[in-house]
């Protein structure tokens, strides 16, 4: 497992029904591209997060397929509609098979 992987997500706690919110996500990950070489000239093997998804109560908001050209500590910002109270689930899929998740509850006022 890649070490020190920590997801951070910003979602408002409360929102009016049907309103649009902006979500920002960041996850700490070195995103080794597989292009770099170490001091001895050996290629450092690729190790990245290759997919990120966001769902709300099971319905997809966004699903991003990622390549090595995404920067270290991948950041995404996007807009979502909130039809009802529920939970946003964020999932990151690592090359090494690990899955990192984060959940954020949101209430409709």
């Amino acid at each position: 497992m890649a070490e020190n992987v920590k997801p951070r997500v910003r979602v408002p706690r409360e929102v009016a029904a049907g309103e649009t919110i902006t979500i920002k996500t960041l996850i700490s990950h070195k995103m080794e591209s597989g292009q770099r070489k170490d001091g001895d000239g050996n290629v450092i093997p690729r190790s990245i997060i290759n997919r990120f998804t966001c769902t709300f109560n099971g319905e997809t908001v966004i699903d991003v397929q990622m390549e090595p050209a995404i920067s270290t500590n991948p950041f995404f910002e996007f807009d979502a509609v909130v039809p009802e109270s529920g939970a946003f689930e964020f999932t990151w899929y690592d090359d090494d098979g690990d899955v990192y998740t984060e959940t954020k509850e949101i209430a409709v006022s």
Binding site: T20, I21, T55, F56, E59, T60, V61, I62, D63, V64, Q65, M66, E67, A69, I70, S71, P74, F75, F76, E77, F78, D79, A80, V81, P83
Partner: peptide
């Protein structure tokens, strides 16, 4: 990257680095 948008995406837009 490839962004795929679901039914709850408010705008078909995204930012990254």
């Amino acid at each position: 990257a490839t962004f795929n948008f679901g039914p709850l995406a408010a705008a078909q837009a995204g930012s990254t680095r």
